[in-house]
């Protein structure tokens, strides 16, 4: 039986809390963890070193909590989902009736599609008895982020322990995500522009432009990303498929644009697309792209759909 606020509920109980100090952070996270371990429920924590250290010092018995030390856990939204899912499957398989998780969703800028992540996990984890507690620093998070948090979490908890339903919650199917801010480089003339050329041509051009500007691994990730984006544009988009590349001495921005509407599924890229065929590779392209160590943005606009890939020294 589930304990705490989700008692009697099924699926993912997605809750947000706001704190303004370490003391308020502790008031939110300590009872969440201690009551979970006391009930014999797995408690999984994905905080950075500082917050994990604080929590360890506050807990009566930190050994009952599973701290995920992997700093890449929240590197990308798709990777966080891919990491958590097998953990949930494992705990359910060994009899867990509830799994409590709390992690550090990057929230100073909440860029990089974390708004989509917070919305998507309401659906993606619906098959698991998960209690996800997402704590946000109200002092440092921008107002736009706090706004997204209220619209992506059905439940809100305060440091005093008071709980309420979020009256601003938006279901995944109608969630209005943040607009991706334009990259300043996009204002300038691209260093290269390819129209209706093959993915191989796009890779070759990018390999030539990117060499010595960004790390080799970053360039390889960008090559995988541009390859998938171009193949998608050619196969599923509306022509012309245009690849524009901008570059500085340490940064690359690549836009793959077509005139179509882009994928309609709100979960695109965050999870492998469901497929009604027996082809295991179908629907994986955008998900693979979102596993890479580069910034990926899916931009829907009146003039079409753009996949923007950025690698190297990020600004802002």
């Amino acid at each position: 039986m589930r304990t705490g606020a989700p008692r009697g509920q099924v699926g993912h109980f997605h809750e947000a809390g706001f704190y303004g100090s370490d003391a308020e952070f502790g008031a939110l996270i300590v009872p969440f963890a201690e009551k979970g371990t006391a009930a014999g429920e797995p408690v999984i924590i994905g905080y950075d070193d500082r917050k994990s250290g604080l929590l360890r010092s506050w807990l009566t018995d930190p050994s009952g909590v599973e701290f995920i030390g992997d700093k890449s856990l929240y590197a990308t939204p798709a990777r966080a989902i891919a990491t958590y899912r097998p953990l949930f499957e494992f705990h359910v398989a060994i009899g867990a009736e509830q799994i409590r998780i709390a992690g550090d969703v990057p929230h100073p800028g909440n860029g990089g599609q974390w708004d989509r992540y917070e919305s998507a996990v309401n659906t993606v984890w619906e098959d698991f008895p998960v209690w996800g507690l997402c704590l946000y620093d109200a002092a440092s998070a921008p107002a736009t982020v706090l706004d997204v948090v209220e619209r992506t979490h059905p439940h809100i908890v305060s440091p005093s322990g008071e709980r309420r339903a979020s009256d601003r919650y938006q279901e995944v199917s109608v969630f209005e995500g943040l607009q991706s801010a334009p990259d300043p480089l996009e204002e300038s003339r691209p260093i290269a522009e390819l129209v209706n050329r093959s993915a191989a041509d796009a890779r070759h051009a990018l390999a030539q432009i990117g060499r010595c500007r960004v790390a080799h691994t970053t360039l390889e990730d960008l090559l995988i990303g541009v390859s998938e984006a171009v193949n998608n544009a050619l196969r599923h988009g509306r022509p012309p498929a245009t690849v524009r590349t901008w570059a500085t001495s340490d940064r690359l921005v690549v836009n793959v644009h077509d005139k179509g509407h882009g994928p309609a599924d709100r979960l695109t890229g965050l999870v492998p697309a469901s497929s009604s065929t027996s082809d295991p590779g179908l629907g994986l392209g955008l998900w693979v792209m979102h596993q890479l160590d580069v910034d990926v943005a899916l931009i829907h606009a009146d003039d079409g759909f753009t996949v923007r890939l950025r690698g190297g020294t990020m600004i802002g």
């Binding site: 191989a200 890779r203 090559l223 995988i224 390859s227 998938e228 295991p280 590779g281 994986l284 392209g285 693979v288």
Partner: peptide
Amino acid sequence: RFIDHRALLALDA
């Protein structure tokens, strides 16, 4: 020089 996930899955199959 380049191989995508589909080709890797084909090799696995």
